[in-house]
């Protein structure tokens, strides 16, 4: 295959994958809300309302300037987030595996790290009305500690984001390494062909099923636990939603996003929900997100619902954990990840 046709195919597959994944990911929050609502004995919103219609509605709202220290950087960070998450999604499309290190674990881990750092950017920029700058005569009444630095809740959220980066993202990285240890390579293509040898030789209309998926081996199954909880941590969902805990920091750094920017934030969050789930299906079951083999593509999309639904159930049944509980939980999960890795070496 010459370079030009390869590039064209690469672009075509990326565009198809991103467009379909974005549309599909906007259905997922509706499914999540519905599952939670049914657990809470409610009917819940229609499936398209929390994701799809909300995003379209936000794009039609008046564009307002966010209150931030550096508004342009603040506005850029959410678009940067969308781009990072879109590239993350492309890790499960086979055309990108041939491009330099794009097909290796290093790329996934690097992009995930950028995604986490974006929350620190957002948090340190945003200055919402809901905390310190609310016009209230509270200082007028005096205080025991005069002259203390007054911080916006978003800045507090940014500090929490740094702590979560330090400890919270370890489990998912360890879990991501396991399939690569089993496949004895750092390339995704090797991991997929290890699980699904028929995939690369199958015709476009074929449905090559994996012969020995890593998920059903002992290390693979063990690694699923830190992967799932690490997924929760990366999405900042309960019980690990400390950096956007509703009860103190409200929504964290994303508070000031309005209209189009909020639509972009919704897309970023929902696309991450889908992208990580799709990467899980690619790495642990061996079914990639390949737009040019439609049946494999659909199967990947179908299986990618499982993690968001599990997430919705977890969210419905858990309170927010504080750092008192998150540190031991993250250490325990990392230990499980290490154990899975040690077991994986022996396969």
């Amino acid at each position: 295959m010459d370079t030009i046709s390869f590039t064209l195919l690469l672009i075509a597959s990326s565009v198809i994958a991103i467009v379909i994944a974005t549309l599909y990911s906007l259905v997922l929050p509706g499914i999540e809300r519905k599952v939670q609502a049914r657990i809470q004995q409610r009917i819940g919103p229609p499936i398209l309302t929390p994701g799809f219609w909300s995003v379209i509605k936000f794009t039609y709202k008046e564009k307002v300037e966010p209150i931030a220290q550096m508004p342009r950087l603040y506005k850029c960070s959410v678009y940067l987030g969308v781009v990072v998450v879109a590239f993350l999604l492309l890790f499960s499309t086979p055309y990108w595996w041939a491009v330099l290190s794009w097909g290796s674990i290093l790329g996934i881990v690097g992009l995930l790290k950028i995604e986490e750092v974006i929350y620190v950017f957002m948090g340190s920029q945003s200055q919402s009305i809901l905390s310190t700058s609310m016009p209230m005569p509270d200082l007028a009444k005096g205080s025991k500690h005069i002259g203390t630095r007054r911080e916006f809740v978003e800045q507090h959220s940014a500090e929490r984001a740094i702590k979560m980066m330090a400890i919270g993202s370890l489990p998912i990285y360890l879990a991501l390494i396991v399939p690569f240890v089993v496949g004895k390579s750092i390339l995704i293509s090797d991991v997929v062909s290890f699980q699904n040898p028929a995939f690369f030789s199958a015709p476009w209309y074929g449905l090559p099923l994996p012969s020995h998926p890593i998920l059903f081996t002992v290390p693979g199954f063990l690694a699923t636990i830190p992967f799932f909880l690490g997924y929760t941590i990366l999405l900042n969902e309960k019980p690990f939603s400390i950096l956007k805990a509703k009860i103190d920091v409200i929504e964290g750094g994303v508070l000031e996003y309005a209209s189009t920017l909020r639509a972009a934030y919704y897309v970023m969050r929902n696309l991450l929900l889908f992208a990580l789930s799709s990467i899980f299906v690619t790495l642990f079951i061996g079914i990639p997100f390949d737009p040019f083999t439609p049946f494999v593509f659909l199967l990947n999309m179908l299986l990618s619902i499982i993690l968001p639904v599990c997430l919705a159930v977890l969210v419905a049944f858990s309170p927010i954990l504080t750092f008192r509980q998150i540190y031991p939980v993250a250490i325990g999960l990392s230990a499980i990840g290490v154990l899975a890795m040690i077991l994986a070496v022996s396969i």
């Binding site: 809901l130 905390s131 609310m134 203390t148 630095r149 007054r150 911080e151 809740v153 507090h156 409200i250």
Partner: peptide, 9 residues
């Protein structure tokens, strides 16, 4: 530092 919340929270 000081964190303040409310009255709409």
């Amino acid at each position: 530092k000081e964190l303040s919340f409310g009255p709409i929270h």
